[in-house]
Design a protein around this nucleic acid. Structure first.
Lengths: 113, 113
DNA sequence: GGAAGAGATTGATATCTGTCGATGGGATGC
DNA sequence: GCATCCCATCGACAGATATCAATCTCTTCC
């Protein structure tokens, strides 16, 4: 694909064409991207994606050099973004990737982690 | 794939396994994700990806309801992330997707925009 | 040289975000 | 009941981020 010559311009007549915008799709994508754009959360998602079993959040608390509230905060962000689901068993909380991920989101995770 | 039963736990013995971490890859991905995790920048990248020609940044300044410094700021972030390249012609600045995008990054954009 | 246009940079500000300590809430076990 | 454990929430705070007005740099045109 050749993207060679730049379009010609007339001085003072800037910007005739407008950019095509599809706001809804963009906002949905941005929400997922914001949730993933953090090292801790991206590693959490990667671990959940590679795990065949739900992962106790206490494992993340131990694996990362962060406080327990911070880990809980990050997992909450992933929950709010709809990326993970939780199952509580006794005093433990087991997390896994959401089973209702949109195909686009699943494809995103396949590329990323 | 069945991710059914949660692993058994012993109280007070939390977190035996550690999470596999590959920091370098994660950090690189996070940089790209941060650059894309903004509605304006994601739309910019989408427009550049769909355009067969480099796009004058003045088009973005006109298309978005944002000031010229803000548009320049966002494009600078995309530049810093290595996602776009610029060609200056006279008083104009034409942007296009970088030609040296990593395969992973290109796959990411294919999913996103 | 001087005026004008396009775009980048600077400085200031309001908001968002990541982090931790402290607290609360539910389950387990004595 | 009461202590203990796990996890979520709250409050506070420092650092990052988005935004704009003002300014600066570079180019073009007269």
């Amino acid at each position: 694909m050749v993207k060679a010559a730049v379009p010609e311009r007339i001085k003072g007549v800037c910007c005739p064409p407008s950019i095509p915008l599809s706001l809804a799709k963009v906002d949905a994508s941005v929400d997922v991207l914001k949730a993933l754009a953090d090292p801790t959360r991206l590693q959490m998602v990667g671990a959940l994606k590679r795990s065949s079993q739900p992962v106790c959040i206490c494992d993340f608390t131990a694996a990362f050099d962060l406080s327990q509230p911070t880990i809980s905060h990050h997992m909450g962000k992933l929950r709010d973004a709809g990326l993970v689901e939780v199952t509580k068993v006794g005093i433990w909380a087991y997390y896994r990737l959401s089973g209702q991920l949109e195909p686009r989101t699943r494809a995103l995770l396949d590329v990323l982690v």
